[in-house]
Amino acid sequence: MIRSHRPFVIALVGLMAALTFWLDQVSRWTPGEQQLDPNKPEFVAEHFTATRFGPQGLLLDRLTATRMWQYPDKHEMYFEAPLLKVFDNGVMQYQIQGEVGRYDTKTKIALYDKKATLFKPATAKDPEITMDTSALWADTAKGLARSSAPVTVHYGQSVVNSVGFSYDQKAGLVTLHSQAKATYVKP
């Protein structure tokens, strides 16, 4: 190769390499995908209400919170002052309110890390039920809830206390794990 052409060839090869690298990068780049800080929320929503409807358009559940946020690539959503209301045929079955909470969109598990209150309105057969505890785990798909912390349940005028409980909403079964105490007042 004539000496005088060599620099040109090298430059040409270099340019081709750069062009190939650039095209490769561009073809791989997808809009919106940037390196996000895993410790900073990717999404934040303030004062929101999320409602889910069933096949006939009837209310299934409604979640409100003063703040919700989610971290990049994580299934868990974090809430401040979450209030979850669960309905059946448009009639509210129970609601769970907390100070703070987490919800895993994959496992459908909700965790209320601080104060949590479960409220079940009165029915023809049962009086109003409220349950207060300082930490609550709830499987919203299966209608299960449990806590290992002290809990107080008001059942009409009657009061039940225990340390740790589990509740199966579909089976209508409440289990008091230890130090169970009930004061039953005839309605």
Partner: peptide, 22 residues
Amino acid sequence: DKPIQITADTGTLDQLKGITVW
């Protein structure tokens, strides 16, 4: 006519059947 007070190690309330086991 007085309230009934029950204390126990564990308790199970079956709301559907109205049965409580202490």
